[in-house]
């Protein structure tokens, strides 16, 4: 545990010691803010109209949910930037020799790196809470669906990170790692689009595989164990592949 925390701390510190962390957070917060503004604006105009006819509007469903659904796509773009360097850079600069000859296990290194990346991701999400805070100042959204949505974001991000970590461990070139991660993430997103046209057997399968599809329920404020299980198994699978990749690298030298 001590070793894991040492490595996670080192990873997190190196993100913030270089401009990477700030660029990533900025890159995420800016479009998030734009979406937030657009949906809030639409919501306000709608609610003005609704007030004339007498009706009910829900901030949770009509602002937060839509903003976070869009955020899940921005996250998909940002994640490769977080994970591309994790292993690739250590291999390129030779620091991986230090890690692999220290009395720590491969799994401790992998989990440490995963938690470090997750730390940066959490920092990213914390910034978005500022926008949400504005809603709480001027309105009264419900906090329970909000917690569910952020739990969903955390799980989905974790799944992206563990896959990205694996891809980074297969190369010593961060650009290659970044591009491949991006393509894989993109595929995991758009595979859900085939659901409607793919027929009754393949359709549900493709929508089950889509990484963003499973976030829908979380965005609505529903925590379904089916989705939790999906993300948890994806995270485990990614970390497992990373472990295998690091081990096979050892044997090949």
């Amino acid at each position: 545990m001590r070793n894991i925390m040492a490595i996670a701390g080192k990873e997190l510190r190196s993100y913030f010691a270089s401009p990477i962390a700030y660029i990533i957070i900025g890159f995420f917060a800016l479009p998030f803010g734009v979406f937030f503004y657009l949906y809030l604006d639409a919501f306000l105009r709608q609610s003005m109209q609704m007030a004339q006819y007498g009706g009910n509007m829900n901030v949770n469903q009509q602002v937060i949910r839509l903003v976070l659904q869009n955020a899940s796509v921005i996250i998909l773009f940002v994640m490769p930037m977080i994970t591309m360097r994790t292993y690739a850079e250590e291999k390129r600069s030779g620091t991986v020799e230090l890690l692999l000859t220290s009395p720590v296990t491969d799994l401790q290194i992998i989990i440490g790196k995963f938690l470090g990346a997750l730390g940066l991701y959490i920092a990213m999400l914390l910034v978005t809470l500022l926008y949400v805070a504005i809603l709480f100042v001027y309105g009264n959204p419900e906090w329970r669906p909000l917690v569910a949505a952020y739990l969903g974001l955390l799980l989905m991000g974790g799944a992206f990170l563990s896959i990205g970590l694996f891809i980074s461990s297969t190369t010593d070139n961060q650009i290659v790692a970044g591009i491949i991660s991006f393509v894989v993430f993109l595929l995991l997103w758009i595979i859900g689009w085939f659901a409607e046209s793919a027929g009754p057997t393949i359709g549900p399968l493709t929508s089950y595989l889509s990484i963003t599809e499973h976030f829908e329920d979380f965005a609505k404020g529903i925590v379904d164990t089916k989705h939790v299980l999906y993300y948890a198994s994806l995270i485990t699978f990614g970390l497992f592949l990373t472990a295998k990749s690091v081990d096979s690298e050892r044997w090949r030298g």
């Binding site: 510190r13 030779g94 620091t95 991986v96 020799e97 000859t101």
Partner: peptide, 16 residues
């Protein structure tokens, strides 16, 4: 635990 190793290129993290 009982070995110290200096590889050919010192394994330093440039931003630390």
């Amino acid at each position: 635990r009982r070995t110290g190793y200096l590889p050919e290129t010192p394994p330093l993290y440039p931003d630390m």
